[in-house]
């Protein structure tokens, strides 16, 4: 599974990043090296192994359906780059 520049460009788009053509070449090289290192995982036979998502065996953590205080609108918007009339303003979507 050799990583191509096209793969990197796809991932850049998917992750909402932006890179120059020069950077694409550099990142492709670096990521390919790392992936090559990662390939060693295939030396291990995992055909009968279940994936382990959580390091510890915990299940069923629930909270009661009880109200807790909200932030004020001012607090909610306190870090907003562009607040407008109680909302977060964003540039046009289409």
């Amino acid at each position: 599974m050799a990583l191509s520049e096209k793969d990197v460009q796809y991932v850049v788009k998917l992750a909402r990043l932006e890179v120059t053509d020069q950077e694409v070449a550099k990142y492709t090289q670096q990521l390919a090296n790392i992936l090559e290192y990662v390939e060693q995982l295939n030396k291990l036979d995992t055909s009968n192994v279940e994936p382990l998502t959580h390091p510890l065996d915990v299940k069923n953590v629930f909270r009661a359906d009880e109200l807790r205080p909200c932030l004020t609108q001012a607090e909610v918007l306190s870090n907003a780059p562009e607040p407008q009339s109680g909302h977060f303003k964003v540039p046009k979507i289409m």
Partner: peptide
């Protein structure tokens, strides 16, 4: 439900914008 899926904010409809919000659902 009285509260949201993952935090204790209310689920009522029609309140002023961004007043039923906590750090979690934000």
């Amino acid at each position: 439900t009285k509260t949201k899926l993952f935090c204790g904010c209310p689920t009522t409809f029609g309140n002023e914008a961004n007043t039923q919000v906590c750090p979690i659902c934000l």
